[in-house]
C-alpha cells in the first residue's frame, strides 16, 4: 500500500539521519540507539499492523489501531502537561528577575 511505502521511506530516512548525527557526535550513541528502537518499532507497526493487536490485547483493548490512538492521546497529554509546567517555571524565573531588578536600588537598612 502507498501509505506503508511512504511511511517506511520516512522512517528509513530518520534512521539514517539518526546514525549520521551519531557519527558527527551531535547525539550520543545511547540516544541514537533509543531513537533507532523508536523508528524500527514504528516501521514494524507500519509493515505488520497486526502486531499492535497483540499489545492491545495485552492491555485489554480489542483492536490494534485503537490502541495506537489511545497511546498517542495519553502521550500527547503528558507532553502538553510537561510544557505547562515548564512554562510555569519560566514565569517564576521571570518574576524572580523582575523582582531582583525592582529591589536593586533599595538601600540595605537592617538594624
Amino acid at each position: 500500500m502507498l501509505i506503508q511505502f511512504v511511511l517506511v521511506a520516512i522512517l528509513l530516512g530518520a534512521l539514517l539521519m539518526t546514525w549520521k548525527r551519531a557519527k558527527q557526535n551531535v547525539i550520543s550513541f545511547g540516544e541514537a540507539f533509543a531513537w533507532s528502537v523508536l523508528w524500527i518499532g514504528a516501521g514494524v507497526v507500519v509493515l505488520l499492523p497486526q502486531t499492535t493487536t497483540l499489545v492491545a490485547n495485552f492491555f485489554g483493548v480489542g483492536r490494534g489501531s485503537d490502541f495506537v490512538l489511545y497511546a498517542a492521546v495519553v502521550t500527547l497529554f503528558v507532553l502538553i502537561f510537561k510544557i505547562f509546567i515548564s512554562l510555569d517555571r519560566m514565569e517564576r524565573n521571570l518574576t524572580e528577575m523582575v523582582r531582583k531588578e525592582a529591589l536593586r536600588d533599595l538601600p540595605e537598612q537592617h538594624e
Partner: peptide, 24 residues
C-alpha cells in the same frame, strides 16, 4: 518599587515583603 513587567499581585506582595524585611 517598580516591576518592569506586570507579574501579578502575589509577585508584587512578595517583592514588597522582601523590601520591608530589608528595611527592618
Amino acid at each position: 518599587l517598580r516591576h518592569a513587567l506586570n507579574r501579578g499581585q502575589g509577585a508584587g506582595l512578595r517583592t514588597g515583603t522582601e523590601a520591608a524585611l530589608r528595611l527592618g
